[in-house]
Structures are given as C-alpha cells and as structure tokens.
C-alpha cells in the first residue's frame, strides 16, 4: 500500500525514463537505416522519426525543415516537445524527487546524474557528436532497471514502477516497427530483398534483439521480425511480453483492492493483441493495426489513472 500520489509519481518516473531511452533507440535505428540504405547526406531521411512519434503536428508548427539538425533538436533537447529526451528526463527527475523517500538513494542519484549529463550535452547538434550521449542514455536505462531489480522490495512501489516501464515499452516497441513504414524507399526494392533484410536487422539491433531473434528464426525477414517484436512470449522487449508482465504487476497491486477496472481493461487489450496474427496483419496493414493498438494503450493509461491515482 502506498500514497496514490506517490504511486502515480513512481509509475511516471519509470515511464519517462523508458521513454527517454526509447527515443535514443529510435535515433540509433534511423542512423543505421540511413547508412544501410547507402543514402547520400542530401537524401537522408529523418522525418519518419517524427511521423512515428505522433508529434508531427507540433514539429511542423515550429520547424521549417526536417533535417538532421532540426530533428535531433526536436527529439533530444527541445524542452517544448513534451516527449523529447530532455523533457522526459526532466520529468523523470521531478517525479523521482517526489518519491525519494520510497526509492533506493542510488536510483535517485542515477537519474540526477543523467539529468546533469543531458544539460552538459545540450549544445551539441549532430547525431555524430551525440553518439556517446545516446549510448549513455541507453546505458542509464539499463543501470536504472538493474538497481530497481536488485534494491527495490517487491511491494506496490516496485509494481507501479515496473508497470509504467512495461506499458511505455509496449507502446514504443510497436512504434519502432512503424519507423520503416514511413521510410521512403528511393531504390524501389521489394520486400525481402537483401536491402530490406539488412534494415530489419538494424531495427532488431536497436532493441538489443538480434541475437535472441537469430536463435529463434536464424535468418531475417519482415514477417518474422514483426512476429518476434509483437508476439514473442520470451523476449523482454516484445509487446506481448510487456503486456504479460504489466498484467502480473497489476494483479499484485489489485490483490487488496476491491474494484480494479484497469485490470479488466488491460486483460482485454492483451486478448486483442493475442488474437492478431503477423501474416494477416502484414496483409491487412501493419501500420493501421499499430495505430489502433496505440489508441488502446492510451485508453488503458487513462483507466490506470482513474483506478489508482485519481482522488
């Protein structure tokens, strides 16, 4: 049992950190895609990142061109973009600040350190100059998760933190699959061409999934990558895995709570995912499915808010 406000903060602390880490992963996957496509600097495409993030409207209002510099700024250091890395880390830190008494002190210090690191890098403008920083953001995510696993008692605080992380991840892994949807393919290659497979390799790599994927499917193709990232029962960044374990967390939280609407909503969303099938999805439009699924996640978030955090 914990204060509702504290539960809310710990949930969002964890979500925002996962969000920051995922933006760094998105930029990384795009960088690799550009290299693998062999595009010249003029041909480089950064707009897919904005399109996938769902923040394209905001971006188009405030930026004239979608080049590397503007996109790096928007996604990394723009404090007016609520989903930029800087905004996410800032909010993770503000939330952590309000739950300092319930998290291990090292967790707070790590988030604080990441915030100061972000400030220190915020004058840089190119992906190349920021490579070390993006790596640091990803590693901090791992570091944070490790400290939570090793130092946090498995009470409500842990379950809310883990649930926040997993719901954010369920959302972002799905969006990652979508990056390639928006990518204009100038050389008109076909699905399953060698080029295509190299690109899907880059997507897998950006979520550290390449080795685990290979053990299961051995060679890379569109259908299997989609199958793996959406439906793997065992891979910890897949959408299904995230929902499975978010459900476990919520069940633990709901044990002593008479009314738990959000749990039913979560189970329903998971059931819808399980009904889908990768081959059929690809035929009927993966992008449309992901769009609809994300709406479901947004509704779930609202339901979590109403069940646990609202007064």
């Amino acid at each position: 049992m914990m204060l509702s406000r504290v539960a809310n903060s710990i949930y969002w602390m964890s979500r925002y950190l996962e969000r920051a880490e995922n933006v760094a992963r998105f930029i990384d996957v795009n960088t690799h895609l550009m290299l693998d496509l062999g595009l010249s600097v003029e041909e480089t495409q950064w707009y897919p990142l904005i399109a996938t993030s769902g923040d394209d409207e905001d971006f188009n209002k405030r930026y004239a061109t979608a080049d590397e510099k503007s996109i790096v700024r928007f996604l990394t250091f723009d404090d007016k973009n609520p989903n930029s890395i800087l905004s996410s880390i800032y909010r993770a830190r503000e939330n952590a600040r309000t739950v300092r008494e319930v998290i291990p002190v090292e967790v707070w210090e790590k988030i604080n350190e990441l915030y100061h690191l972000t400030q220190a890098h915020s004058r840089k403008r190119s992906v190349e100059a920021l490579q070390a920083y993006y790596t640091e953001v990803r590693q901090s995510g791992t570091h944070f998760a490790g400290m939570m696993i090793n130092a946090m008692s498995r009470g409500d605080g842990w379950h809310f933190a883990r649930m926040g992380q997993l719901l954010e991840r369920a959302d972002k892994t799905a969006r990652l699959l979508d990056v390639k949807y928006f990518l204009l393919l100038p050389r008109g290659e076909q699905v399953d061409s060698p080029y295509d497979n190299v690109q899907w390799g880059a997507v897998l790599k950006s979520v550290n999934a390449l080795e685990m994927y290979r053990q299961e499917y051995h060679s890379i193709n569109y259908r299997d990558v989609t199958q793996f990232l959406l439906f793997s029962r065992l891979f910890p960044r897949s959408v299904r895995f995230s929902l499975d374990y978010a459900t476990v967390c919520m069940e633990a939280i709901c044990e002593k709570k008479p009314q738990c609407t959000a749990l039913n909503d979560m189970k329903a969303l998971r059931a819808r995912l399980m009904e889908a099938d990768a081959t059929a999805l690809i035929a009927s439009g993966l992008h449309e499915f992901i769009d609809e699924y994300q709406l479901g996640l947004n509704r779930l978030d609202q339901s979590v808010y109403e069940t646990f955090f609202k007064d």
């Binding site: 204060l3 008494e101 002190v105 409500d156």
Partner: peptide
Amino acid sequence: AQQMGVPLCQNSDLVVEDDTVYMRTTQ
C-alpha cells in the same frame, strides 16, 4: 521521511473525515 521509512505527504494526500485524518492510498 526516508530516514524514518514513513510516507511523505502533501496536503492533497490528506483528508479529514469525522475529525479523523486519513491519507489517500492505492487501497
């Protein structure tokens, strides 16, 4: 709060009913 292992409340976490103070928790 951390040194004592007790909740840190803001006023919005507390409510008084029948002259008794309560805190709003997830349960």
